[in-house]
């Protein structure tokens, strides 16, 4: 595993993965979007609004998955001090925050026609909101220091603290919801038919490969930034 800690070797693999990820993402969108938007049937209860699900649910999964990637790489970074691991976490954060934000917005667009309100303090939506705040905190903390490495370490530790916090938040809001059952509408209670599984999985695939492809681009930018810092330092030292 420690072989991957070498940035040059790591980027070689990442660059080799990039065309595949980008291509598969585009392919999944090309195949998946027409099914999601046209050929898949409307739900017998929710009508056409069920099509929002094909954006909302994959976005929710990606929001959580990217955070898991961030937390795992942050742990690797804190334990073995592999900079590459931290760069993966740092580069993932804006992508994950975008997916989480997308999940929240599409959740609102789904909630208004179905439950008659733009926002419900439903357990899952509330957990996603907290996740969104964690992403914002991670990004803000990483950028808040003059000393880059100090920001890196603080952000990595926050990612780990957040990963302990998230299950507790989820449990709390779930309990909180059952306590106030009378006044809260539940987002649960509809089953997915098989015709919906295909577009859903295609959209999940499209988002996954999108994440990998954009992650590689962001990794290139992050590693260049590190190179620029060293080059500047050397230039200042010799000049």
């Amino acid at each position: 595993m420690h072989k991957f800690a070498n940035p040059t070797f790591f980027m070689k693999i990442a660059n080799a993965v990039f065309p595949w990820a980008a291509g598969l993402s585009v392919l999944c969108f090309i195949v998946g979007l027409p099914i999601a938007l046209v050929t898949s049937p409307p739900d017998y209860q929710q009508g056409e609004t069920v099509r929002i699900m094909y954006v909302h649910v994959p976005a929710a999964w990606m929001g959580s998955m990217v955070y898991a990637v961030m937390a795992a790489s942050s742990a690797v970074y804190l334990i073995w001090r592999h900079t590459v691991a931290h760069i993966i976490a740092r580069a993932s954060a804006p992508i994950g925050a975008m997916f989480t934000g997308l999940c929240l917005v599409t959740g609102m667009l789904w909630g208004e026609p179905m439950w008659g309100t733009w926002w419900v303090w439903d357990a899952r939506l509330t957990s996603m909101l907290i996740l969104f705040f964690l992403y914002l905190g991670y990004i803000a903390l990483g950028d808040a220091f003059e000393d880059q490495e100090r920001g890196d370490r603080a952000a990595a530790l926050l990612a780990l603290v957040g990963s302990v916090n998230l299950p507790i938040v989820h449990f709390s809001v779930e309990w909180w919801n059952t306590l106030h059952q009378s006044s809260i509408l539940s987002m649960q209670g509809f089953s997915i038919s098989t015709e919906m599984v295909v577009p859903l999985l295609l959209m999940v695939g499209a988002f996954q490969f999108y994440y990998v492809a954009v992650l590689v681009i962001r990794l290139r930018a992050e590693l260049l930034a590190a190179k620029i810092r060293t080059a500047r330092f050397n230039l200042a030292a010799t000049g």
Partner: peptide, 23 residues
């Protein structure tokens, strides 16, 4: 969209906007 156009299309438009913006 069966009367739900103002919910379905913005969801997809915002999705596209988010993905394109980050890219």
């Amino acid at each position: 969209m069966g009367g739900y156009a103002r919910f379905v299309w913005p969801a997809y438009a915002l999705g596209a906007a988010g993905l394109v913006a980050v890219l």
